[in-house]
Nucleic acid binder design. Structure first.
Lengths: 174, 174
DNA sequence: CTCGTAAACGTTATAGTATAACGTATCAAT
DNA sequence: ATTGATACGTTATACTATAACGTTTACGAG
């Protein structure tokens, strides 16, 4: 399967995001099909809403989107769908923001078993996962005697694109 | 100043916790004194409550403690005190638990500027900071082009003491 | 096929976490 | 003493999450 994006780097500001979403939905469907999981309508719609951008979205914002066309879903519907998607590594919880973001690498073991390793741009809001194997190794070395079960690693700052913009502005001020 | 505890290791199950609390309060007082900050009554009481154990405590549990003797504090009082304590590195927010824990190393630069690096025991609830310099370095290497501003690193699992207990039980079952 | 069971869902209520916005009090430097 | 900034009191409200119930739906066993 050809990778249409380098999902471990920050998305270009003007990229065609439909591709990301469509691809994520397709992968989720394939994964559920393979594992005999029920990819129901609510679950699909919640995942689609999460994938509406690369920025984390809160449960109640998902709910609002879900009900935008006159729906009558209750918060529980969203939280149950999110529980399912979390359990199967299709989304990540962003603990530092109380929000959720799509997982670009579902099924790659790392994702939900050990937690998530995320870079969060405070300017554009985008979140990407990074390859945290070296980080996990460092954590394990730094915590001798501690039996690690899960890791929440959330790094905030400026993504390359926004950093460039910020610098330009700073220069313009001179 | 003599260190009465090795604050980067998990506290012994039966350790004399009063010492930890008293010491933490004393350090906070010293730090506020040095920086000309107002270590007010509410702030002191909130910090004392946070230091009532090594386990994170929620804002509303702090509030309950504060009002245990008939007080009439509102949530805002607690959150404002927590904001102050967070800003000056006297407590850490535990994002994955929506709770707060005392910082054993206030003033050591790492603490609040870059975020926190915590080990969380799911059995006894204790939290300790670990030396995450190597972890931070690994993160920096894993995120080229990303301008890191803060890190939330929260590792859950079993601390050495609880791991030992768990093993004993497992053996006893045989 | 239909029956039994487990999973998913709908619904209502409630618990738990956090901030907005306003006015008052306190402190400290002039 | 005046003043400006910081801290506090108070009320209201927004936001996040789960409990507990009953009903519906999907799906395999017989």
């Amino acid at each position: 399967m050809a990778r249409t994006q380098q999902s471990r780097t920050f998305p270009q500001p003007g990229h065609n995001h439909d591709r990301c979403a469509v691809q994520a939905l397709a992968r989720a469907e394939a994964l559920c099909d393979a594992k005999r999981l029920r990819f129901t309508s609510v679950r699909r719609r919640v995942l689609a809403t999460v994938w509406a951008s690369h920025a984390p979205i809160g449960a109640y914002d998902i709910l609002a989107q879900l009900n935008a066309g006159g729906g009558r879903n209750a918060p529980m519907a969203v939280y149950r769908a999110l529980d399912f998607l979390l359990a199967h590594g299709l989304v990540h919880r962003v603990a530092s923001l109380n929000a959720f973001v799509g997982c670009a690498h579902p099924g790659e073991a790392h994702s939900h078993k050990l937690g998530s390793q995320l870079l969060i741009c405070r300017a554009c809001g985008s979140v990407v996962e990074f390859d945290g194997r070296a980080v996990s190794a460092a954590v394990a070395r730094a915590a001798p005697g501690f039996a690690i079960e899960s890791e929440v690693i959330e790094i905030s700052g400026l993504c390359p694109h926004c950093r460039r913009l910020t610098r330009r502005k700073a220069i313009a001020r001179d």
